[in-house]
Design a protein around this nucleic acid. Structure first.
Length: 540
DNA sequence: CGTTTTTGACCAGCGC
DNA sequence: GCGCTGGTCAAAAACG
């Protein structure tokens, strides 16, 4: 909903990152509404109030700003017309001296005053809305921050308790655990080229070179699978997957090959059958990530083995099939294909959940895709409309204003959610502007939009770790967003829903705080070394 | 020599 | 039933 003047320059987003002029920076500071800075929000409110009380010229100026900020998508034409009318009226009057009578001038002045008055009224309404949204966002942020403090305290307690564990468990495993604990807060998924694949490094686009790399080797913890299955089990492994029906790993080949056997497993229990069907559906949920990349495959921290390649219909580029090889029986697969329309866009489709611990570098993407799938399906469970409804939580949470960035498809054989990390091909940068705080970070200079899922993933990783270590569980109930007619209401509903979930809220707050600290160079986290360092251990 | 990639063959689902 | 398509397998080749 918010359109910031800084984004209206017509330059593409990556261009903005590369060529930030001092003027741009200044404009960002002046115009960007940062919901996560109380100080900044207060300043904005003061500016708005000042504008209301100032003279008419300033009002017109503020109106223009507001029109660009808020109403760009729904009443752009109206505001432009008003501005033009006002400007033309004034300029014509001031420059043209054709001997008009004073009555005519008075009438014109009255008309102008009436127009300005009307404008002021509209502006007040808009300001009221802005204030409401700001206060709501501020409240949400405060809530998130408070919950973050609680989470951090819990984590400190866990760390202290894990020190005792280190004494009893193996030192190496303990070190891995500690690494995970300390490194994760600054972990970022790498959507750029494989940091370990040197042959791909030269093909990296400038956009991807801005990515923040992880310096951590794949540190696995609690690798029961690896301990039990020392050797790789590639190919068809039904039995190991059936044996480990934990929350993470379920075979994703249920409907196709094991439809009968899966029913045999649950004979006589309808609920179990329903649950397995739901899990099967969950397994078939797909998360598609579109990202610009010259590299043949984006690096997401996992190890993949290519097991097939096919020419897909309607696309001259072949589709490659990969299987996760970090654990022998990991059911996660992904498809990589270039977009037929724009071959610089790499479409990576993930399917299934990892049934093994993931390195921090991989956790972000895995959490993102898992959360996307679960959220997608949580919406689809209640009604099919949940799939297509634009009020879907994830779509709203990630991109409340740009349907092109997070789309949900029910036409595919399996529910699929697409996270579009590319700027729109036509350079329509306003798509990247939103009142979503996550996306606001993405608009900051030097922040690559492709790291957006890192934020979500990082947040969800916090969530998962919290669940794992403190016994807290992910909310069983889906986060339902009531259908609303207004976009702002939908955003508010999504924000409220997120904020109402303490786990997610705390996780999101951690991620946001992490990003904020990182962007402002005030992060005193000792793991800052991870930033901009390359991990050579992540093979692809 | 172990692992990964390539690639033709195979299978299942779907529409006609 | 047949053909098309997507997805997977597995032997051979390539790679480190």
């Amino acid at each position: 909903m918010f359109r910031f003047p800084v984004s209206l320059g017509g330059s593409r987003d990556e261009g903005r990152h590369d060529q930030i002029t001092p003027l741009d920076e200044h404009r960002v500071v002046v115009d960007e509404v940062d919901f996560f800075s109380e100080k900044r929000a207060r300043v904005s409110r003061e500016n708005i109030n000042d504008a209301e009380d100032d003279e008419e010229a300033d009002k017109v100026h503020v109106k223009m700003e507001n029109s660009r900020v808020e109403e760009n998508d729904r009443s752009r034409d109206v505001n432009i017309g008003l501005n033009l009318l006002t400007a033309n009226t004034g300029s014509d009057e001031s420059t043209v001296d054709d001997g008009l009578s004073m009555d005519m001038e008075d009438k014109r002045a009255k008309i102008e005053n009436a127009q300005l008055q009307e404008e002021v009224n509209k502006m007040k309404i808009e300001n009221q809305r802005l204030r409401d949204m700001l206060s709501q966002a501020t409240n949400n942020f405060n809530a998130l921050q408070n919950q973050l403090v609680g989470v951090m305290r819990q984590q400190e307690q866990r760390n202290s308790s894990q020190d005792h564990l280190l004494a009893t468990e193996g030192k190496a495993e303990g070190r891995n655990r500690q690494e995970l604990q300390t490194m994760v807060p600054r972990q970022f998924m790498d959507l750029g080229p494989s940091s370990g694949a040197a042959e791909h490094e030269a093909e990296v686009s400038s956009e991807e070179r801005t990515m923040i790399h992880s310096a951590s080797p794949p540190s696995l913890l609690e690798s029961s699978n690896l301990r039990e299955n020392g050797k790789r089990l590639l190919g068809r492994e039904e039995s190991p997957e059936e044996s480990e029906s934990n929350a993470w790993g379920n075979p994703n080949k249920v409907p196709k090959h094991n439809s009968s056997s899966s029913n045999n497993n649950n004979n006589g229990n309808g609920n179990v059958i329903d649950q397995s069907a739901a899990e099967a559906t969950m397994q078939k949920a797909r998360v598609s990530v579109r990202a610009r990349s010259e590299a043949p495959m984006i690096s997401d921290g996992c190890q993949w083995r290519k097991y097939g390649q096919k020419m897909a219909k309607g696309n001259p580029c072949p589709r490659a099939y990969y299987r996760c090889t970090m654990a022998g029986a990991c059911p996660v697969r992904k498809q990589v294909q270039r977009c037929a329309e724009d071959r610089s866009i790499l479409i990576t489709t993930y399917e299934g959940n990892h049934n093994h611990p993931l390195p921090p570098a991989a956790m972000a993407m895995a959490s993102t895709t898992t959360a996307a799938a679960s959220m997608l399906l949580s919406g689809s469970m209640s009604s099919q409309d949940g799939l297509m409804n634009p009020t879907n939580l994830l779509a709203r949470a990630i991109l409340p204003c740009s349907s092109s960035m997070a789309t949900i498809s029910a036409s595919a054989p399996f529910p699929t959610i697409t996270l579009d990390l590319t700027n729109s091909p036509n350079g329509n940068t306003p798509n990247m502007t939103t009142n979503n705080p996550l996306m606001q970070f993405a608009q900051r200079p030097g922040f690559n939009p492709a790291v957006l899922p890192q934020v979500v993933g990082q947040a969800l990783y916090y969530n998962q770790q919290q669940s794992k270590f403190s016994g807290l569980q992910l909310p069983a109930q889906p986060l339902q967003i009531p259908a609303t007619s207004s976009v702002s209401e939908s955003v508010s509903a999504a924000s409220a829903a997120i904020a109402s979930d303490p786990n997610f809220a705390a996780a999101l707050a951690a991620a946001i705080t992490s990003i904020m600290n990182g962007s402002s160079h005030q992060n005193n986290n000792t793991n800052n070394n991870n930033v901009a360092t390359s991990n050579g251990d992540n093979r692809q």
